[in-house]
Simulated assay, not measured.
Amino acid sequence: MELNIGDKIPDVKLKNEKGEDFSFTEIDKAIVIYFYPKDFTPGCTKEACGFRDSYEDFRDLGAEVIGISSDSQESHSKFKTKHQLPFLLLSDPEKKARKAFGVKPNFLGLLPGRETFVFNREGKLIYKFNSINSGRHIEEALTALKNNHQL
């Protein structure tokens, strides 16, 4: 399955870094969801810190940021603490969210995909971006939010 512009956010339940249940449908504001391969790797750390450093810009645009990988809740908790990440990290060990969002593997299928989705307040997809270049995801998501006046 692949999400297309205008599609509703999938109703997938995952655990956050504290082990608490989380559902995307619980948020009533715009959401930027970024899927990344692995905690503590150079590209993923750069991406997470980029979202951290721009977090107030996302909040000013009325959006929440959420990161998802297949890492454990414990790994997410350590990653979040070490890099002072102000947003949720969700654990997707069974790849339920990756399948529901249609995130494809990168690099000949060897690495989990790196893809960012931007949903408006009504939970409809307004933008998606797929690139192994971790640094571009923050800029692309901010631009999508700025350009969409129907958040």
Rank of each mutant, 00 (worst) to 15 (best):
R114V: 06
G6Y: 03
I5E: 00
F51S: 07
E139T: 12
R52S: 01
P42G: 09
K80C: 04
F35T: 06
N106V: 03
R98Y: 15
I33Q: 09
R136H: 11
E115A: 07
D11H: 13
I27L: 10
D7S: 09
D21A: 04
K99H: 15
I27G: 03
D53N: 14
E47P: 12
D11R: 11
N16F: 02
I9R: 03
C49K: 13
Q73W: 08
L61N: 02
E56L: 13
L111E: 05
Y36N: 05
V103L: 06
D60L: 04
V103Q: 04
F24A: 09
K95F: 14
T41D: 04
F117Q: 06
F58A: 10
K8S: 14
E2L: 08
A141H: 08
D57E: 14
C49R: 13
L151A: 10
P93C: 09
S72T: 08
N16C: 02
G6P: 03
N147Q: 12
I138A: 10
Y55D: 07
G19S: 01
D28F: 13
P10S: 14
V12Y: 01
L125D: 09
Q73E: 14
G102I: 04
G135L: 14
S91C: 02
Q73G: 08
L61D: 00
I9D: 07
E2K: 13
F87Y: 07
F24K: 14
D53I: 07
L110W: 10
R121A: 05
K13G: 07
T143V: 12
G67I: 00
A48Y: 02
K80G: 03
D28A: 14
N16I: 00
F58S: 11
E140F: 07
S69F: 03
K29W: 11
I5H: 00
A100V: 00
